[in-house]
Design a protein around this nucleic acid. Sequence first.
DNA 1: TCATTAATCAACACAGCGTTAATTAAAAGG
DNA 2: CCTTTTAATTAACGCTGTGTTGATTAATGA
Lengths: 203, 203
Amino acid sequence: MSVQKVDRRIARTKRMIREALAALIEEKGFESITVRDITSEADINRGTFYLHYQDKFDLLKKCENEFFQEIEDIAKDIKVNDIRKFSENQQPLAYSVKLLEYIKNNAAFMRAVLGPNGNVAFQIKLKEYIKTNIGKVFLKEAEGNKDRMKVPREYLLSYIVSAHLGVIQQWLQNELKESPQEIARYIGIITVEGPFQASGFKK
Amino acid sequence: MSVQKVDRRIARTKRMIREALAALIEEKGFESITVRDITSEADINRGTFYLHYQDKFDLLKKCENEFFQEIEDIAKDIKVNDIRKFSENQQPLAYSVKLLEYIKNNAAFMRAVLGPNGNVAFQIKLKEYIKTNIGKVFLKEAEGNKDRMKVPREYLLSYIVSAHLGVIQQWLQNELKESPQEIARYIGIITVEGPFQASGFKK
DNA sequence: TCATTAATCAACACAGCGTTAATTAAAAGG
DNA sequence: CCTTTTAATTAACGCTGTGTTGATTAATGA
């Protein structure tokens, strides 16, 4: 198959539109954005928008799909024994570091969709991703000891995934002050040792 | 101060509007709802809506405020030593049970604002509430042992709070099959013992 | 250089908004 | 019960945003 070269004008227009979208979501939330807002922020004609996207929902969906496409590749490298490694020498999980690095490199968009004016549907999809690629790895380890499972698997899983996302949101709110490695270490510590073992409460 | 008696017509109208809102949010999400949708669902004149609310955002805000007003009262009864009680005899935390009971009694609205078409701003406010009334109680216990704190307080707190909310959302998604007591027990087990102690992994 | 095609511009019908003035209907209170 | 008060209805207003179209201009790639 031949590689289609993209017209520079198209690339530029799409880039402007997406940058405008991220800026506007963060500014006032997706729901109150109009196509007019986007095109005037991007400094293009309103009609041009409709040459590329059906409406603002279509635009958001395409941005999200692009995101998931890209982090899907990250997931390919996950090592199942990551968690064992962590238990043994407290090394941050490789998957976490990569995901967090990606988030840091796309901070504007991530802050937009995960921040206070963000989008629940996106968060649900992201949780689904984390659940598939991360939670299950953790639980696989845990279920070796199934008879001692005190809480149904679905609740344990949703707990881990939500907690994961919570730390990421706190990090974004904290203006990405810490390094991805550091955050990955926090997640590892809390998730593997438990929040109160980590803080020194109990035993 | 004299108790103002509310005109039955007003009470009815407001009730219809709020029921319509919950139904519509769950159906297609807050952002794509129009005032027309609400008033036709509630079977009232569109003009009537504007006698009570400025716009749909005002309506949502007032519904949320009512919610927080009511759960604020619940928080008044929280006992600081709840967590100790749990550690000793695995009794569900009193605050949790009450909050979860309230959620169960207002399932339509809660499913609407916390579900897939829900509202991030509401979730943030709810997290804030949980953080204040629950997380801090947990952490107060934990911080007796401050020198063993491996993770910054803010991350630990956001972890606990997000995880909390995650279990609630899983519960709503699970159609409130379990009792509030049971869910409170799950939350207690996972939060105090840690997800992997709870599942039997490690040690 | 020149054919191709993206972007612009102006105009269209349409839908939802928020408001208003006149009217109808229901509730509260004597 | 009857009257006064006030909530709800109705129909219309101007305004803003939508999504589309046809004609025109300008940038791109070969």
